[in-house]
Design a protein around this nucleic acid. Structure first.
Length: 551
RNA sequence: UGGGGAAUAGUUCAACGGUAGAACAGCGGACUCUGACUCCGUUAAUCUAGGUUCGAAUCCUAGUUCCCCAGCCA
């Protein structure tokens, strides 16, 4: 097992060596209020990865303390996505809501110790009394209620005697603290709402701060790993652990969340994209969600490889999306079988090939893997080639088809363009070519070379398909999350309605990407029908010709 | 002007007082029945200023810049 080197693994290793724990226990704690995205994948790989590497285990725990935002659909989707990513929580599936009763008892414990009180202030009053970043807060007029009164009020809160927002339970810590999280944080609020798991059993719910660390302690989590924005919650996390009779002593560590160029990894924004109809759903292949990436054809292995490459640190950063594409190509180049498909077809007639005649040629399924075997493809008088592979007036560096130029049709013959047929509007509608029968299979006996090999599809055999090309959802490398609509890329989806596929693609399976030679990696989409397959482009092949500015 | 963090090639991450290194991106080349893959070469960095030390990215001091925090969200 390759053990990565990062500051968190260093800490875990040191703790184990020092005998502070005999077993490492981590957890991935999503709130079920949206789908998981590539940023969560970083956390999942970190938490489950550490557990694997050090022989411990990792819990999946839903942080379901806010019933107004959480849904069963998200719980199901999250489980599915974590599993698909390749991780297993075994029997360790938990919910913060499993601990509601114990958390309630611990709240009473704090009240009895004089360390928590019921505040009747309105949200506005509380905000005003909290002070500012530079000015201290002021004590609530309800801060010194008796233990008896606090207990009575808290029990009546639980009993449902008060409407939403009427009162809260707060910790009594320090309204003048420089750390605003310590200015008497809210522990419980009244929420008359149905919870996906506890139904209407409760009408008061613990806050994140009051639930998270205690849940960690209950489960015996040794290393509670979260993102940087929780760094200044750590003193509060520790305060609860120290002031409550918890069964273990977890510690929180923070790392920098993932950012990727040309995308936004914010649940708020992703939810906005879905609800605003900017995408077709959480699994729209343009989405950076796990479900979207899966539908686009990205293998789980590529996501894991990517996460390994980017490392873990505490500095805010934005990873170049090229790194992600690299990992995707890395896996797909190795695993995807090759096929030929013409995305934007241009008809070719081989003038010296007999009408009605066909022959079978053999094509390799993978250039570097003979075990992948071969398949037969049919050649005939009428073919399709890529429109981009022909230029009537080619620039100097263009090696593909042009009038008078000879190229190779992959696995077939050398052909030469003899004539260009246009319609009344002047558009090229057909190419007239000749082939050299001596070059069957793709090599010339006289040793002459061609500078280009092109993919093609036999016209009578071709399957017509819809192909969807995806471009970044945002047009700026660093989109403004607060007004993401302004930065949306209007060309993020490009639909090619008339692609021509070789017949072997009829049996393409979902989640089994193939390479369309010279184009990229594609996968069959679930929108396919028997009559009309639909393919998604997972990622294009690198194209040094286009990159050189030769579009 | 409060509290908490972070600063190393264009980007992401290493170097844990002892030769600043990798990956991605870029550039150049080789190979090629995918202008792919692969291979070779190459450009390129310690936030600033002092100090400690034989020796500092690393330790100390002062400063600069960036990020997070004023939900009854997580």
């Amino acid at each position: 097992m390759e053990t990565g080197r990062d500051f968190i693994r260093d800490i875990v290793r040191a703790d184990l060596e020092a005998g502070r724990h005999k077993n490492v226990v981590t957890r991935f704690p999503p709130e079920p209020n949206g789908y998981l995205h590539i940023g969560h994948a970083k956390s999942i790989c970190l938490n489950f990865g550490i557990a694997q590497e050090f022989g411990g285990h990792c819990h999946l725990r839903f942080d379901d303390t806010n019933p107004t935002k959480e849904e069963q659909e998200y719980i199901d989707a999250i489980e599915r996505d974590v599993r698909w990513l390749g991780f297993d929580w075994g029997p360790h599936l938990y919910y913060a809501s499993d601990y509601f009763e114990r958390l309630y008892e611990w709240a009473e414990h704090l009240i009895k110790a004089g360390k928590a009180y019921i505040d009747d202030q309105s949200p506005e009053e509380m905000r005003a009394a909290r002070g500012t970043l530079t000015a201290p807060g002021t004590n609530s007029p309800f801060r010194d209620r008796s233990v008896g009164e606090n207990l009575d009020l808290f029990r009546r809160m639980r009993a449902g005697e008060f409407p939403n927002g009427a009162r809260v339970l707060r910790a009594r810590i320090d309204m003048t603290s420089g750390n605003i999280n310590l200015r008497d944080p809210v522990l419980y609020r009244i929420l008359h709402a149905s919870h996906p798991r506890t139904g209407t059993q409760w009408c008061i719910y613990p806050s994140y701060d009051f639930a998270h660390g205690q849940s960690d302690a209950i489960e015996g989590i040794t290393h509670s790993i979260c993102t940087l924005e929780f760094e200044d919650h750590r003193p509060l996390y520790d305060w609860f652990i120290e002031n409550l009779p918890v069964p273990s002593r977890p510690r929180q560590y923070e790392f920098a969340r993932l950012n990727l160029t040309y995308t936004v990894l914010s649940k708020r924004v992703l939810t906005g994209l879905v609800r605003g109809g900017h995408v077709s759903g959480w699994d729209d292949p343009r989405m950076p969600t796990i479900a979207g990436l899966r539908r686009r054809g990205v293998p789980a292995e590529a996501i894991r490889d990517f996460v390994r490459r980017i490392g873990v640190a505490k500095a805010n950063s934005i990873v170049d999306a090229n790194m992600f594409d690299f990992s995707v190509r890395e896996v797909l180049n190795r695993t995807a079988e090759r096929r030929m498909a013409v995305l934007r077809p241009l008809r070719v007639v081989i003038e010296n090939y007999p009408e009605g005649q066909f022959e079978e040629l053999e094509a390799a399924n993978h250039p570097d893997d003979v075990n992948a075997g071969t398949r037969k493809i049919r050649f005939g008088r009428e073919l399709f080639v890529e429109r981009d592979d022909f230029m009537e007036n080619p620039p100097k560096k263009f090696f593909r088809l042009s009038p008078g130029n000879e190229v190779r049709l992959r696995y077939a013959y050398f052909v030469t363009c003899r004539d260009v047929v246009k319609n009344a509007a002047g558009d090229i509608v057909e190419l007239r070519c000749t082939y050299d029968p001596a070059t069957r299979g793709g090599n010339a006996p006289d040793g002459r070379k061609v500078k280009a090999t092109m993919h093609w599809v036999s016209a009578v055999d071709a399957i017509t398909a819809e192909v969807r090309l995806y471009n970044p959802l945002f047009r700026r490398p660093d989109p403004d999350a607060s007004q993401f609509q302004d930065d949306l890329n209007p060309d993020s989806l490009e639909v090619l309605p008339d692609a021509k596929l070789e017949p072997a693609l009829r049996g393409a399976e979902p989640e089994r990407p193939v390479q369309f030679e010279r184009q990229g990696y594609f996968v069959r989409d679930r929108d396919s029908t028997p009559e009309r397959p639909v393919f998604n482009r997972t990622v294009g092949l690198r194209d040094s010709y286009a990159k050189a500015g030769n579009d």
